[in-house]
């Protein structure tokens, strides 16, 4: 009951935040230099008189601001996000539908890699606290975390191109037939379909972008994992386990590790925020055709509808992740619900 109320409250809050983001984008669309119509068609709106008239009617751009705001919300809820000049005036919604799956793929694999690298290094650093190994890990994560993702990508490209020949510029070998959409994420769809050639190619192409993001992000996790493990090791509970005669190794892995895991949930939403933001750079660097690359192209082409829509989608992803992390954390640690 208590949990349900907490979840409900967080959900209402998430919706309110989203509504505020929508309001902000509406305000911004009116602040864009030039005609309001540019907010829906970009700077080249004048070259598309027909589309401009259609858009003005659809979004009631000749009416008062409150009326415009109402139709703005209605259109947003219906998924009408304007037309993207950097994509030949395609509806923004369909551009998002094409690009979002690739971004989610990167974030998915990068998240797994971040957790793997971050937790392993954090655990090793805590287990061998104060040794050369601990210090080496600290230097590594400090360096990685302080570097911009595009620079990490450049370094990885230089290092790995001598060893492997990893292709980039696409989400998979363009000569292969892509799978039909089932989950929407091509790599998983190809696996379900049994299209192993595409599956393999997809993994190869996603590897470097995802690894780059993971290297740029894991430091956050390692730092938290290490310090929370060390903190748990200081508690009475662990002292008791030691006093029972358990050896240091099993005290660490069987007792301290599960306890420290809870604190990692809180940071996971921060990780996702980092990864999602980072896709803008790695997709640009590796030419991976996701939403990040789209927003870079949109910025270059003053494609306002594209920029606004991608912002909205990024916000939705982050708000949902925060909500999920809040709920997970509340389940894992009942005390938080009181606060």
């Amino acid at each position: 009951m208590n949990l349900l109320r907490f979840v409900l409250r967080r959900m209402v809050f998430a919706v309110l935040v989203l509504a505020s983001v929508l309001t902000i984008t509406f305000v911004l669309s009116h602040l864009i230099p030039g005609d309001v119509i540019q907010a829906w068609l970009g700077k080249e709106a004048a070259t598309q008189p027909k589309l401009a008239a259609l858009t003005a009617a659809k979004y009631h751009l000749n009416d008062s601001i409150p009326v415009q705001y109402y139709y703005y919300l209605v259109n947003m809820l219906q998924g009408n996000l304007g037309y993207s000049p950097s994509r030949g005036f395609q509806p923004v919604t369909s551009v998002i539908a094409q690009t979002l799956p690739y971004t989610l793929q990167i974030v998915f694999f990068a998240f797994i890699m971040t957790i793997a690298i971050g937790v392993v290094l954090g655990v090793v650093a805590a287990r061998y606290n104060g040794t050369v190994l601990d210090k080496g890990i600290r230097i590594f994560y400090l360096g990685a975390y302080s570097s911009p993702p595009y620079f990490i990508g450049v370094v990885l490209l230089i290092v790995l191109s001598f060893v492997l020949n990893i292709p980039s510029g696409y989400a998979a070998n363009p000569n292969l037939t892509p799978p039909t959409a089932i989950t929407g994420l091509p790599i998983f769809d190809s696996l379900i379909e049994g299209n192993f050639a595409y599956f393999e190619s997809g993994l190869v192409y996603v590897f470097l972008p995802a690894l780059t993001l993971a290297v740029a992000t894991f430091g956050l996790l390692t730092r938290v994992a290490r310090s929370s493990l060390l903190e748990v090791m200081q508690t009475d509970y662990i002292r008791t386990a030691r006093a029972k005669g358990l050896d240091e190794g099993s005290v660490f892995y069987r007792h301290a590790l599960p306890n420290a895991a809870v604190s990692l949930i809180t940071i996971s939403s921060l990780l996702v925020t980092f990864l999602v933001t980072g896709t803008i750079f790695v997709e640009d660097l590796f030419g991976y055709p996701g939403m990040g690359l789209y927003v870079v192209k949109a910025l270059a082409g003053t494609d306002y509808p594209g920029i606004m829509a991608t912002t909205l989608v990024f916000a939705i992803i982050i708000i949902t992740t925060n909500l999920a992390a809040d709920i997970l954390y509340a389940i894992a640690d009942p005390q938080i619900r009181l606060g």
């Binding site: 935040v17 983001v21 911004l28 864009i32 980092f274 999602v276 920029i307 912002t311 990024f314 916000a315």
Partner: peptide
């Protein structure tokens, strides 16, 4: 506080991009 909550829901880079789009 509610105002800052909204800002916190958006990554700084993404927000900066939007503002860049408006300001130039």
């Amino acid at each position: 506080m509610r105002f800052t909550d909204v800002f916190f829901a958006l990554p700084v880079l993404v927000l900066a991009l939007v503002i860049a789009a408006v300001l130039g």
